[in-house]
Design a protein around this nucleic acid. Sequence first.
DNA 1: GTTACTTGTGTCGTATACGACGCGTCGTAT
DNA 2: ATACGACGCGTCGTATACGACACAAGTAAC
Lengths: 147, 147
Amino acid sequence: MAEVFEDAESVMAHLRALRQELLTTSIEPSGDQARSGLTAPQVGLIRSLVVEGSATVTELARRLSLSHSTTSGIVDRLQARGLVTREPDPHDRRYTRIEVTAPVQGYTREISEGPYGRLTRALDAASAAERKAVLEGLETLRALLSR
Amino acid sequence: MAEVFEDAESVMAHLRALRQELLTTSIEPSGDQARSGLTAPQVGLIRSLVVEGSATVTELARRLSLSHSTTSGIVDRLQARGLVTREPDPHDRRYTRIEVTAPVQGYTREISEGPYGRLTRALDAASAAERKAVLEGLETLRALLSR
DNA sequence: GTTACTTGTGTCGTATACGACGCGTCGTAT
DNA sequence: ATACGACGCGTCGTATACGACACAAGTAAC
């Protein structure tokens, strides 16, 4: 149990660092090209709307693996910028469909690479064995936790 | 490049889910035993103080792989609860040493398992090959990103 | 039809998390 | 001695992120 604890600390350090590198800094500061001032979750939400179609807040939360309240806040900020709209569903007034506004449609082509451009490029440059190691490691970890 | 993108989405989904399972829910709601109302970062910071000794805010930030401002905020909230103190260094007044208060010392034995109890137990129950797969996967991913 | 349950939404409070900024402090070069 | 750069700290503004809550709207039970 002793040395396993070091593994646990190592795993946590890896996950923290990966999150920082991928989730929070993947879009804006990498200097790739001039950007829009959007954060990774915001780009991910817009991208989901474009690629998988408009959806309700709850559906978006499910797609992005976020809670309802978090997703609602992201929609709030995008709506304040005029990038998405909330359209009440006439058939069932509980529903509110989130739609991207027209000006976003064109811009979206630029982000069709997804919010994970850096990760995608890294995986593309990796060997098949490396990709396999990455995916198997993550899958193994999750399987261990759900056991 | 096409199928690689699916790998990227898969990796991101794994990381998101792992973060939720480990970072945010590892301490409180697992029903292990009655808890203190402390969050995982708070427990991690206290644990670092006890195990590795008292330190400055910057040093703590480095240990926890967090930014200085985030760490300062966590110390703020722990200080408000009387769990840590800020002691100005008499030799160099730029420094402020963070110390755990006396009542915390005993309690700390209960959390010496670390904030990652669930992860530690999972890794302990895993085979050597599984542990290797997990660590290699994470290390490979980080190496790919820093290439 | 009225009641009870479910579902979807938005909001509130709190805790991370970061970069940017200003302030005080120390060492050092001028 | 003084100016200056480096360092540590705290604070601000903003964005994520969650659970808990209240409310509205539909559904089901009776």
